[in-house]
Amino acid sequence: MSTTYYEPLVYIVPPEEDGFILKTILQKRLMVSRKLLSRLKLTEQGITVNGARQYISIKVKAGDRIEVRMEEEQSEDILPQDLPLHIIHEDEQLLIVAKDAGIIVHPTHGHYVNTIANAVVYHWQQLGITCRFRPVHRLDQETSGVLAIAKNPYVHQQISEQMIHHEVKKEYLAFVWGRFTEQSGTVNEPIDRDPEQPHIRIVTPSGYSAVTHYEVVEQYGKAALVRLWLETGRTHQIRVHMKHLGHPLLGDKMYTLPEFEDGPAAAEAAERLSRQALHAARLGFVHPGTREWTEYNAPLPADLGDLQSWLRGES
Rank of each mutant, 00 (worst) to 15 (best):
183 Q>L: 11
199 H>I: 15
162 Q>H: 02
97 V>T: 06
96 I>E: 05
56 I>A: 04
196 E>C: 12
116 I>H: 02
148 A>W: 00
208 Y>C: 12
167 E>N: 06
103 I>D: 04
50 N>R: 06
21 I>A: 11
49 V>G: 01
43 T>P: 00
293 W>S: 11
243 K>I: 03
274 S>H: 14
132 R>H: 09
100 D>W: 10
27 Q>C: 08
17 E>N: 07
24 T>A: 12
163 M>L: 10
169 K>V: 13
62 A>I: 10
18 D>R: 07
35 K>N: 09
23 K>A: 10
189 E>R: 13
162 Q>M: 07
133 F>V: 04
38 S>C: 15
218 E>N: 09
72 E>W: 06
239 R>N: 01
76 E>S: 11
89 H>M: 06
84 P>Y: 07
167 E>T: 06
53 R>Y: 08
240 V>Y: 04
7 E>K: 13
171 E>L: 10
162 Q>Y: 08
53 R>W: 07
267 A>D: 10
110 G>L: 01
63 G>M: 12
208 Y>E: 13
9 L>Y: 02
2 S>D: 14
229 W>L: 11
228 L>E: 04
188 N>K: 14
47 I>D: 00
213 H>N: 08
56 I>P: 05
206 S>A: 15
97 V>Q: 05
46 G>K: 00
105 V>G: 05
256 T>C: 07
278 L>W: 01
159 I>R: 00
134 R>L: 05
192 D>K: 15
243 K>P: 01
91 D>Q: 04
70 M>N: 01
170 K>D: 03
85 L>T: 00
99 K>R: 03
140 D>P: 02
77 D>V: 14
307 L>G: 06
43 T>D: 11
296 Y>P: 02
176 V>T: 04
125 Q>K: 15
24 T>W: 12
163 M>E: 05
192 D>E: 15
118 N>Y: 02
97 V>C: 09
56 I>L: 07
69 R>V: 08
261 E>M: 08
202 I>N: 01
89 H>T: 01
121 V>L: 05
77 D>A: 11
178 G>S: 04
75 S>N: 11
172 Y>R: 04
214 Y>L: 03
76 E>H: 13
151 K>W: 05
74 Q>I: 10
115 T>A: 03
63 G>L: 08
48 T>M: 08
99 K>H: 09
305 G>Y: 10
184 S>R: 14
10 V>R: 11
255 Y>P: 00
42 L>A: 15
18 D>N: 13
232 T>Q: 07
67 E>P: 01
10 V>A: 10
129 I>G: 02
155 V>E: 03
44 E>W: 07
312 R>V: 07
210 A>I: 04
22 L>P: 00
274 S>C: 15
28 K>F: 06
102 G>R: 09
110 G>T: 02
141 Q>F: 13
217 V>A: 12
8 P>V: 00
26 L>M: 06
186 T>Q: 13
76 E>L: 14
160 S>K: 07
30 L>S: 00
28 K>G: 08
35 K>P: 10
179 R>S: 14
73 E>M: 09
203 V>Q: 08
183 Q>N: 15
262 D>G: 15
234 R>F: 03
69 R>W: 01
153 P>S: 05
169 K>P: 08
88 I>Y: 06
